[in-house]
């Protein structure tokens, strides 16, 4: 608890950054905290990088967008370049280290730059469809904005109808969130 956390999540369309931001925001709201999530949308998003802006705190939240994030998560080469603008000296920058040819573009001024093999883990250990849930785990670990139980409850709320039909899916999602947390813990 305490200070407001500002998070920018960016990826390609279909990588699921918007649903990750929304689930975390809803989990924080369920905890009774203040949360504000805004996507980019429309022409800006079509064929461009999908960016989710998320703020969580205990006081009413100010402007919906911000200049500098506490944590930036970038999931593609374009996302890495697009999100450089949100990085400051206090920013933790998380990217997928499976993205090729981005060494040059990684921010130089960040507090920490953490590469995690989320894409690889999703493909080899779990399933590509839970890639974004691994990212969600990573965000939760890096920011501690919501408790993991509440994150799981928010996933349950959003995907429960699918889990009813296929309980294995629940297991896989919850495993994904834990793996995401482990990935960040190992590099922090």
């Amino acid at each position: 608890m305490g200070k407001m956390v500002k998070i920018a999540l960016a990826g390609e369309g279909g990588q699921g950054v918007q649903s990750v931001a929304q689930i975390i925001a809803e989990a924080a709201n369920e905890e009774g905290r203040e949360a504000l999530y805004i996507p980019n949308f429309g022409v800006e998003q079509r064929g461009g990088v999908s960016v989710a802006y998320l703020q969580i705190g205990d006081e009413p939240i100010g402007a919906p967008k911000f200049q500098t994030a506490d944590i930036v998560v970038a999931l593609s080469d374009r996302a890495v370049r697009r999100t450089n603008q949100y990085v400051g000296p206090e920013t933790v920058f998380v990217y997928d280290n499976g993205i090729e040819n981005i060494e040059e573009d990684l921010p130089k001024n960040a507090k920490k730059v953490l590469g995690i093999p989320a894409i690889e883990v999703s493909k080899k250990e779990l399933h590509p469809r839970v890639f974004n849930i691994i990212i969600m785990g990573a965000v939760i670990k890096a920011t501690e904005v919501v408790a993991v139980e509440d994150a799981k409850a928010a996933i349950e709320k959003k995907l429960g109808y699918k889990f009813e039909k296929n309980p294995k899916l629940r297991e896989m999602n919850f495993r994904a969130i834990e793996r995401g947390m482990e990935l960040v813990a190992s590099v922090m």
Binding site: Q22, A25, E26, N29, E34, A35, L36, Y37, I38, P39, F41, I61, P64, K65
Partner: peptide
């Protein structure tokens, strides 16, 4: 547009 698209409580 911000108010339209953002989520808050």
């Amino acid at each position: 547009g911000y108010q339209a698209k953002m989520r808050e409580s």
